[in-house]
Structures are given as C-alpha cells and as structure tokens.
C-alpha cells in the first residue's frame, strides 16, 4: 500500500509538472493524461472503484481528447522552438504557488488529522446508484441540465457563422 502510494504519487507529480512545464503542447497534454491516470489509480487505492473508473473515462477519454482537438484546431501543435515559454510575471506566479503549497503543508501537518485508515468501506455500484437516485436526485437532474447547456454553449461559442459568399 505504501509502496503503491509512493510510486503513484511520484507518477502524478512528474506527470503534472511535465504537463505545465514542457514546451511542446502535445507532450503537455499527454503528460496530463498520465497524471489523470495516476489520480484514478489513487482513487482505486482509496477504495472508490466507480469514481476512479469515471475519472479515467471522463478525463482521459474526454477532457484530454478535447484538449488535443483544441490544440490541433488552433495550430498550437507546431509551436516555434524559440520565444518565451512563460508569461511576463512568471516569477510571481511560481512564488505564489510555492507559498500556497507552504501554507497548505504547514496547515496539514499542524492540524493533526493524520489518523490511520479505518477498515476499508465496502462501496458497491448499487450503493452509489441508490444514493444518486434518493438523496442526490436533484443535483443529478441539475447536473444533466448543466451538461446539456454547456454542450450547446460550447457549440455556439466555437461555431463560425457560414459566410454568404
């Protein structure tokens, strides 16, 4: 468990760092997919099988593919090999991120919540389904509306008007 966690954690951090640091944007997205798979593996390690598989399906199968499409549609895939990679205020950004991590780490270590895991909960798909249909049925419906609206919105935003010529 410890070993698996270490390997997966290193994989996630390496993938995530590469995803925001590499020059070639396609490599960025592929590394992002690696980080997504790593997070899904952690979900499986935590005993949430359904969420882990949903994570792979949505993030690797949809979000990463969507990003790849966006890359190719905006012709970002063949970037110039030179030119600045980062924005003008990159130092500020990285410092802020480091500061946030420092604060979070201090907070986590000081909070004393680091207890060991209770016996692994049995989480079946049936349980999730019943919960979704009972306590969370309204959020589920709202989510359906949200997804429909966002899909229509995305098409409308990305659509060009056919030019009458």
């Amino acid at each position: 468990m410890q070993l698996a966690f270490t390997i997966i954690a290193l994989l996630i951090l390496a993938g995530a760092t590469a995803a925001v640091a590499l020059r070639n944007l396609v490599h960025c997205v592929l590394c992002l997919a690696v980080a997504f798979v790593g997070v899904a593996a952690l979900f499986l390690l935590l005993g949430a099988e359904f969420v882990g598989l949903a994570q792979i399906m949505v993030y690797v199968g949809a979000v990463a593919i969507l990003m790849v499409f966006a890359l190719l549609l905006t012709r970002n895939a063949d970037l110039p090999a030179t030119g600045p990679l980062v924005s003008k205020s990159w130092l500020t950004g990285v410092s802020i991120a480091a500061l946030v991590f420092g604060c979070l780490a201090i907070g986590i270590l000081a909070s004393g919540v680091g207890q060991a895991a209770p016996p692994s909960p049995q989480l079946s798909v049936r349980q999730i389904g019943e919960e979704l249909m009972r306590n969370y049925v309204l959020p589920l419906e709202v989510l359906g509306v949200l997804l429909t609206v966002s899909m229509i919105g995305a098409v409308v935003i990305a659509m060009t008007d056919p030019k009458p010529d």
Partner: peptide, 25 residues
C-alpha cells in the same frame, strides 16, 4: 470480477483514442 465491470471496459477503451492520436501526431 469487478463490481463496475462494464464501466471498466469503457474506461479502458478510451485509451485507444489517445493511442490513435499519439500514433498519428
């Protein structure tokens, strides 16, 4: 014998799309 076997099947299947892109690009 996975409790979410069907979901596993489709989740795994999505890797094919990424692989096709990797090969083509």
């Amino acid at each position: 014998n996975l409790d979410a076997g069907v979901l596993f099947f489709f989740a795994i299947g999505t890797a094919g799309e990424l692989a096709a892109f990797m090969a083509g690009w």
